[in-house]
Each structure stands twice: as C-alpha cells, then as structure tokens.
C-alpha cells in the first residue's frame, strides 16, 4: 500500500499535528519507505495464528474500591499552562 499526500494530511489531522508543505513531502517519502518495509509481513501466512497484544498472562487486575488520598490539587496545577479557581483553563470550546 502506498500513501499519498492527502492521506498524510488526513493522518496528521487525526494526530492533531499541523504540517508545512515541506514536512508533508518529507513524511510522504519517509512513511512510504517504512510501509514498504513493513509489507514483508504479508509473506507470512497467519490465517490460523492468534493475535498477541500482551506477553504476560495477567488479566483483570481488581482492587478494593476504597477511597485513598490523591496528589494535592495545588501540586497538580503547578504544571498547568493556565489555571483558574482550581481548574485547568483552556480557550473557549463552545461558541
């Protein structure tokens, strides 16, 4: 599969990344090289192979639903680019 400029623009949009014309051209070229390399997987017949997403056999780790202290609010907000009255502040979302 080959990827074109429009597709790269679309993935960039999905990724919330804005590209310049020059970057778009560079990524089209580089991503195609990588995708071409990845194609080698198609040489393998995997019809009867189960997918593996995870290497250990741990599943469904549960814990008691008990209240525990969190990191203090002021310690959390200290890294925020903008705050107001104990909240994260962002540009207006709804017009």
């Amino acid at each position: 599969m080959k990827i074109d400029k429009d597709q790269v623009e679309n993935i960039a949009k999905l990724s919330r990344i804005r590209l310049t014309e020059l970057e778009r051209e560079m990524f089209v070229h580089q991503l195609n090289n990588i995708l071409f390399y990845i194609e080698k997987l198609n040489k393998l017949d995997t019809e009867n192979v189960a997918p593996m997403a995870y290497t250990s056999d741990v599943s469904n780790v549960f814990r008691e639903d008990k209240l525990k202290p969190s990191i203090p609010l002021q310690d959390v907000l200290i890294n925020a680019p903008a705050t107001k009255s104990g909240f994260f502040k962002v540009p207006k979302v709804i017009e």
Binding site: S15, I17, E23, F27, L31, K92
Partner: peptide, 27 residues
C-alpha cells in the same frame, strides 16, 4: 480556539521522529 491550541501545541512541541511515529501509529 481549542483545536488550534491542540494542533499548534503538538506541532511546535514534538520533534520530527515523534511526529512520524504518532502518524504511523494512527495510520
């Protein structure tokens, strides 16, 4: 606006290798 904030923050904050991998991953 907020979408512009997300996009510009990420475009200015991430380097090319990180952008390449995020895009490949989303693809």
């Amino acid at each position: 606006g907020i979408i512009d904030m997300y996009c510009r923050t990420r475009s200015e904050g991430f380097g090319n290798e990180v952008k390449r991998r995020i895009m490949l991953g989303n693809y």
